[in-house]
C-alpha cells in the first residue's frame, strides 16, 4: 500500500535519508517515463529531492510522503516544460536495464510495448505510471492529478485498452 510510512528518524537529515532510500528508484523510473529522457530525469529527480529537503518540515503526515514527493515531481516537470522544451532525441529503449536474465517469457516484443507506452497520450500514461510504478490507489491518483476517481479509473481502463489495441492483443472498442 502506498500509505505505508516511508519516513523514519527523528532528525530532518534522518527523515530525508529514509525518504531517499525508500523512493528514489521509483521516483526515477516514474520521471524517466514522464519525460522520456534519462539525463533530464536525473536532473528532475535532483530538483525534486532538493525541493523536498527544503520543504520537509511542511510535510504534515509521513504517510503522505510518497504522494507529496510525486506531486513535487510533477510540479517540477511542469515548470521545466513551461520554461524549457528540450529537443529530445529518440531514446527508445535507451534506459532499459541490460540485464534480461530474469525476464519473463516474451509474450510480446519488449520494444513494441516500450514504444506503445511512449506513444500513449499523457492523460492516459500518467495515471498508469502512478498506479504501476508508484503503487497508488485510484483515489490517491485522483488527488495527485486533481481528477475525480471515476475519471481516473476510466483513464486506466483506456490506457491498457490502447496498449493492447496497439499491440493487437485486444479488440476492445474504446468508444463503447
Amino acid at each position: 500500500m502506498s500509505d505505508t510510512p516511508v519516513i523514519h528518524g527523528n532528525t530532518k537529515q534522518q527523515r530525508y535519508e529514509s525518504l531517499v532510500a525508500a523512493l528514489y528508484q521509483d521516483v526515477f523510473r516514474y520521471t524517466y517515463w514522464l519525460c522520456k529522457s534519462k539525463p533530464l530525469a536525473e536532473d528532475l529527480v535532483q530538483e525534486t529531492f532538493l525541493r523536498a529537503w527544503r520543504s520537509l518540515e511542511s510535510l504534515q503526515s509521513d504517510k503522505a510522503a510518497k504522494a507529496w514527493l510525486f506531486t513535487i515531481l510533477r510540479r517540477e516537470n511542469a515548470r521545466l516544460y513551461e520554461r524549457y522544451r528540450p529537443e529530445l532525441v529518440d531514446i527508445e529503449g535507451q534506459a532499459i536495464a541490460e540485464n534480461d536474465e530474469n525476464e519473463p517469457d516474451n509474450r510480446m516484443d519488449r520494444e513494441l510495448l516500450h514504444n506503445a507506452i511512449n506513444r500513449l497520450e499523457s492523460e492516459y500514461r500518467e495515471p498508469l505510471l502512478l498506479q504501476v510504478i508508484g503503487g497508488f490507489s485510484g483515489k490517491e491518483i485522483a488527488e495527485i492529478l486533481d481528477l475525480n476517481n471515476n475519471t481516473v479509473m476510466t483513464r486506466l481502463f483506456r490506457a491498457r485498452s490502447k496498449l493492447k489495441q496497439e499491440l493487437k492483443l485486444d479488440g476492445t472498442d474504446l468508444d463503447e
Binding site: Y24, W33, A95, I96, E98, R110, L113
Partner: peptide, 11 residues
C-alpha cells in the same frame, strides 16, 4: 509484462 517493462529501468 507491463510491470516488468515499466520497472525495468536502469537506475
Amino acid at each position: 509484462d507491463l510491470q516488468h517493462q515499466l520497472q525495468n529501468i536502469e537506475i
